[in-house]
Design a protein around this nucleic acid. Structure first.
Length: 466
RNA sequence: GACGGGGUAGCCAAGUGGUAAGGCCGAGAUCUGCAAAAUCUCCGUUCGUGGGUUCGACUCCCGCCCCCGUCUCCA
């Protein structure tokens, strides 16, 4: 078994092999959020893809050290704090906190490090890197006081995106500004302070200013993971220019190949259209939670389409996810009731489990993997219907599922049921045994009034949140 | 214009040379005090389209149509 991944740099699926001579440690860098607003579900699609990647690598025996940066200074964060009339750090702190809450709601495994661009050690590192670039003559200070990277000095610029820079169509954004630059494609390493920046600035050898976006990632990635990464992830829209710029800066500074594998996640569409505030189809995670969907349902939807395909996000898709998850829950409850406290049979893992993992080995083929899971559920239910599954076999299946769930994290929330509800349900069971249906229905209403629903199943009452 | 990603049942979506996984919806059955849920079964002669290669193509080749994205600080 080996894990294969599609590498944007080569446009092929390659066997994954980390730099670590022991083949165990994996250094992974993932471009994180710009904390000027609540993150939207498109952002989270990328983070969930990265989470799946990390968890599957771990299931396959790798040890993953992942970094996710927080961009807490750029045009948008500065504009935001000015509008609110608060200091930049106060403005971004709110969205950083919200971001971590959202990650938890979506069950995304925490990264090892969450460096913030404005942390003094990283600002210092950025300045140091720019100084190195300056000394190599691959960057220059322009008339406006900003420092730019001279892409003419880095012939490989454009290689990741497979762009021929001479053929780029100038877009509106670059036609009307940036005239201080030598070449239209040169990008800012250090942006000189201007009045719009207010009190957001740092001292540097080139005067007051702030770092460019690209150098932030290069500095944080190399500071925490060293000069050479195994995997660098992001959304497809980051390929050009952001990741090209990271490669150019980092490789000029370190003299090393920056990242061995580049993985990019496709965009998310909503109801068949590009998600945009103007189209009225823009969702933050919070918007969906308010509609009554759970983090796990949203996670399932974002997880269930292959990361390199555009994902068409719809509310009916969320409803479908809810139904599918209920089916998994029912299966697990049924297995649990059968297994009781019997230890798992000491047999090899279910063949379905091997097939599940093998599907994910192939560039995270999640559809194939989920297909295996549902086949497994049907076969297992059939066996239970026929009374052919032993408690030990059921326990075995549950043990295998735990491995699967360590990758997908889709099991039911372990909601703690209040004692008051449990008491009413017990009372109701007694009434039902006495065939006192009137009393039973009354108690069901009482439970509902507390926000819970009782369903009578073969295994006894099932209590869920309404 | 350049560079990408797609078009498989009502919806979502695997497969990529040997005769269409899986999920949702829908239908039937089982279970059931009621309600709800659950379980099982069924549900495409066909893979955008026109050619070609082949004993055989959704899968390879050529042409065409349509959708989506990126093109200098959007995941």
């Amino acid at each position: 078994m080996s894990v294969s991944l599609f590498n944007t740099a080569t446009r092929t699926i390659e066997a994954f092999k980390p730099l670590d001579p022991a083949g165990r440690m994996v250094k992974m860098y993932t471009c994180g959020p710009t904390v000027y607003n609540f993150a939207h579900i498109g952002n989270f699609r990328a983070y969930i893809f990265e989470d799946l990647l990390q968890r599957h690598l771990e299931a396959r025996g790798f040890e993953v050290e992942r970094v996710m940066n927080l961009t807490d200074v750029d045009d948008k964060t500065i504009a935001g704090c000015k509008k609110c009339g608060v200091p930049l750090a106060d403005f971004t702190a709110k969205f950083k906190a919200a971001f971590f809450e959202d990650l938890q709601a979506l069950r995304i495994k925490p990264a090892a490090h969450y460096p913030a661009a404005t942390a003094p050690e990283y600002i210092a590192r950025m300045i140091e890197m720019i100084q190195t670039l300056q000394s190599q003559d691959v960057s220059y200070k322009a008339d406006d006081g900003s420092v730019y990277f001279r892409i003419a000095k880095f012939p490989r610029y454009g290689q990741l995106a497979h762009l021929n820079l001479d053929e780029l169509r100038p877009s509106g954004r670059i036609q009307n500004d940036e005239y201080e630059k030598e070449a239209i494609g040169d990008f800012a390493l250090w942006k000189a302070w201007n009045a719009d920046d207010g009190d957001v600035w740092w001292e540097s050898p080139w005067g007051r200013g702030r770092p460019g976006w690209h150098i932030e990632c290069s500095a944080m990635a190399t500071a925490l993971l060293g000069p050479e990464l195994d995997i660098h992830c992001g959304g497809v829209d980051n390929i050009f220019p952001h990741h090209e710029a990271e490669i150019a800066q980092s490789e000029c500074v370190t003299g090393r190949h920056f990242s061995r594998y580049w993985l990019h996640c496709a965009h998310l569409m909503v109801e068949g259209q590009k998600m945009a505030k103007s189209a009225g189809n823009f969702y933050t995670l919070r918007d969906l939670l308010e509609k009554g969907y759970t983090g796990r349902e949203i996670r399932y939807v974002l997880l269930s389409v292959h990361y390199r395909l555009p994902l068409n996000f719809t509310l009916s898709g969320l409803d479908a996810a809810r139904t599918a998850l209920v089916r998994i829950d029912a299966w697990l409850e049924r297995l649990g009731a059968l297994a009781g406290t019997v230890p798992a049979a000491e047999t090899a893992a279910e063949p379905a489990m091997s097939r599940f993992l093998e599907a994910l080995d192939e560039d995270l083929n999640i559809s194939g993997a989920l297909g295996q899971l549902f086949d497994w559920i049907r076969d297992s239910n059939r066996a239970m219907d026929a009374g052919q599954l032993t408690p030990a076999a059921a326990a075995r299946t549950l043990a295998d599922f735990a491995v699967l769930n360590s990758i997908l994290e889709i099991d039911a929330d372990k909601a703690s049921i209040p004692d008051a509800v449990l008491g009413l349900v017990q009372e109701r069971q007694a009434a039902r045994e006495g065939k006192d249906w009137g009393r039973s229905d009354q108690l069901r209403d009482a439970v509902a009034a507390l926000g819970w629903q009782v369903k009578d199943t073969k295994q006894g009452p099932q209590i869920t949140r309404i």
